[in-house]
């Protein structure tokens, strides 16, 4: 009973803490100063049509590198905890229905294509490396559901992940050496505003992030599937 009381008190305090967001905070009439700088200078300076991408990949690129590192550490932790029991219990899995298998054969190439499209056009349309990587991983999940005895090539996954991570840092250092700072995208020509090959290194960085995130998530799915 005391426990229930504590829970209710905690929740009431949380509501009281969050209520000013609703009542006190006035809706913004204009952008904050930092955002104004990003919005005004972003298209000319970086050549990126999507300003969220400009903020994520270049202006706050170091944060994104840290984010990729966190994702990598989480994947490494999952691989560490679920690493055993790779060989036994094969035959207890039942076969997927013909509907799932046919649907997978039809949809898998389209899903992979959509994922690649999303991370290649991250600087032009809503989307980017993380979203594209998740879409690719969802396609592989469909494949795992359809063919439960499928073997994912683990070493290929590790190579994709490591190489894209390494190239991400190398591109960052190239920006430091050839342009304004770490992860600066302007060491490549900015190109025509709004075309696929524009915005300097942003499409390359986002493609690398997409491949890395996709490989990591497929690794997580593979670990979880093997451990059941």
């Amino acid at each position: 009973m005391v426990k229930q009381l504590f829970i209710i008190i905690t929740l009431v305090f949380l509501v009281i803490m969050l209520l000013p967001l609703m009542t006190e905070v006035k809706p913004f009439e204009d952008l904050s100063l930092v955002s104004q700088k990003y919005v005004n200078a972003g298209p000319d300076e970086l050549g990126s049509q999507n300003l969220v991408t400009a903020v994520v990949v270049t202006y706050r690129g170091l944060d994104t590198l840290g984010e990729v590192a966190v994702l990598f550490i989480a994947t490494a932790g999952i691989g560490f905890f679920l690493r055993k029991k790779a060989v036994e219990e094969k035959d207890m899995k039942s076969k997927a229905s013909v509907l799932v298998r046919t649907g997978t054969a039809l949809l898998l190439p389209l899903i992979l294509l959509l994922g690649v499209y999303i991370f290649l056009h991250g600087h032009l349309t809503p989307g980017g490396g993380f979203q594209g990587g998740v879409v690719i991983a969802s396609g592989i999940l469909l494949l795992m559901l359809a063919q439960s005895d499928i073997k994912i090539n683990i070493s290929l996954l590790y190579w994709i992940e490591s190489l894209s991570g390494a190239f991400y840092v190398i591109i960052g250092i190239l920006g430091l050496a050839l342009a304004g700072g770490f992860l600066d995208n302007r060491f490549l020509p900015l190109g025509d505003f709004g075309r696929l090959f524009s915005a300097g290194a942003i499409p390359i960085i986002y493609s690398l992030i997409g491949l890395k995130v996709g490989a990591e998530l497929v690794g997580i799915l593979n670990n979880m599937q093997r451990s059941q």
């Binding site: 952008l31 930092v34 955002s35 990003y38 969220v52 944060d63 966190v70 994702l71 993380f130 995130v213």
Partner: peptide, 14 residues
């Protein structure tokens, strides 16, 4: 404002 959108993008992945 593009900054909160970028922050949420990070937060979702984490």
């Amino acid at each position: 404002d593009p900054v909160p959108s970028a922050l949420v993008l990070t937060a979702i992945v984490i």
